[in-house]
Amino acid sequence: MRITYNREACQGHNRCYLLAPELFDVDDEGYAVLLISDEVPEELLAKAQLAVDNCPEYAISMTQSMPESGSPT
């Protein structure tokens, strides 16, 4: 699983930063900064789900990582 974070939708509620500081930091203005671009490690999946489920702005989602499969021709 990978995390997708939409900076445009983020309004700085900081729920993700509080629930999953291993995955999210905040910048000087209080907007979230996603710390991880790769696969979410197994042990942080539950925290990632909390970040998704508590974002009032739906700015965070998790997607199944697709196997590398080249672009359609």
């Binding site: 700085g12 900081n14 930063y17 509080l18 905040v26 910048d27 000087d28 203005e29 209080g30």
Partner: peptide, 11 residues
Amino acid sequence: RRLLLPAFSPK
């Protein structure tokens, strides 16, 4: 708003 945000950030 941006003027004030840093003073109220979590850190």
